[in-house]
Write a protein that binds this DNA or RNA. Structure first.
Ligand SMILES: [Mn+2]
Ligand SMILES: [Mn+2]
Ligand SMILES: [Mn+2]
Ligand SMILES: [Mn+2]
Lengths: 218, 218
DNA sequence: ACCTATTTTTCGTCTTGGCTAAAAATATTA
DNA sequence: TAATATTTTTAGCCAAGACGAAAAATAGGT
């Protein structure tokens, strides 16, 4: 059984590995976890001793299969609890993350398998992120950022990259949620801004918005 | 926001106050928490500094209203989660306590009020223990131990004093659960053992069993 | 190749919540 | 009341996980 701190480090490193593809640096981990590099060094040495990641001084960290499995398990729990909060307790998708940060550390195989079943074995969390199965495998789907679409292309919103409250509330205001169809009416190459159509509404969005919305194109 | 350790101490002291009616001794707390008296002294001094209990050296501890409120809040969460596990996730009543010990420390007012609502605002947990309301008030009901009944008296099982797995599984084997009607056929004064009728079955129970089953007589 | 800036590690320290051993206070019993 | 037993507290120590300051390694620029 791993401690709360260990689980959080593994989770952060797992996410950073996805994003950066390769060794994860001490500073990157410190940034992500809002902690100091010296603390990170201590912890990755400890995790290396436990064979949860491989680490050579000054060379960054890489999860071992075991470390990856632990991390995926924590992420699985986080996302299942988020589904629970939204689907069963009627929470809004911008309110669930902080609570799931706590719930993800409850240790019980049986609890999580029963919860999974209770929720109907969902594949995605309320933000469109895939839920790892009990072995830690994730069903990766084809998705791109809205910002990658060109004029006249269509996409269906399948997820968000950021899930800050501010961003999610912006999306709500614009009536964009998972499953919403989006048509790119125009794209400005100078600043990456777009004009899009959502339902009957047409409006302007900044590059920053377009870079944080995942869409699927068929 | 209080730490996991602080919450567990407050909860233990709360329960000991109920049982013993009066100041709670250092040793009693240490026993209940499977820790050492010296550790208890440290913690109760810390809790006294925070005004969660009153404490004079060598005189034991008594929760302040604030301390009692925190403790009742933790117990409320514990019991609501137990209801969730049994009612929604089909756990057996002997499996839920350990998991609830973890879930009770998740901090979110909104989570617990939504959970309460989702469960239909239950008054009792799966072991028959009353669930405090959001202000920490408990609906106390008239109940006595089965061992207090005399020959020919009837009672309805409304709770268990112990909820160890062994005991609960024993009760299952004997088809006794919350709501079961029990008739005392005989009582041996020498050792406190009884012969009781449950449904169509008649059988012998030891004093230890009778002292851990709460019944209501009408 | 050398100097400098950046990143990472090391070292000493802090807080929380444990522990043991010894001292002090209280309770019991002769 | 005095001696003894029990309970409680104090004092010193430990491990986890954080921190800042200083040292070491690496990366970049010339
Ligand atoms: Mn989340
Ligand atoms: Mn999510
Ligand atoms: Mn319980
Ligand atoms: Mn219970």
């Amino acid at each position: 059984m791993y401690s709360l701190a260990e689980e959080n480090y593994l989770k952060a490193i797992y996410h950073l590995e996805q994003e950066a593809k390769g060794e994860v640096s001490t500073n990157a981990i410190a940034d992500r976890m809002a902690t100091k590099p010296s603390s990170v060094t201590d912890m990755i040495q400890k995790l290396a001793d436990k064979k949860l990641l491989s680490y050579k001084r000054y060379k960054g960290a890489l999860l071992t299969p075991e470390g990856r499995k632990i991390a995926a398990g924590v992420i699985r729990k986080h996302r299942l609890w988020e589904v629970f909060l939204v689907e069963k307790l009627d929470f809004h998708w911008d309110e669930v993350h902080e609570i799931a940060e706590q719930l993800e550390h409850v240790h019980s195989e049986k609890l999580i398998s029963r919860l999974d079943q209770f929720l109907g074995n969902p594949d995605f969390d309320p933000h469109g992120d895939p839920i790892p199965d009990k072995h830690g495998n994730i069903k990766r789907t084809e998705k791109k950022l809205l910002s990658e679409l060109d004029k006249k292309q269509r996409g269906v919103c399948v997820g968000v990259k950021e899930s800050s409250s501010d961003f999610l509330q912006y999306l709500d205001k614009k009536k964009i949620t998972i499953g919403t169809k989006i048509l790119v009416l125009g794209k400005e190459f100078f600043d990456g801004s777009m004009v899009i159509q959502v339902g009957r509404d047409q409006f302007f969005i900044s590059k920053k918005i377009a870079e944080n919305l995942y869409v699927q194109t068929n």
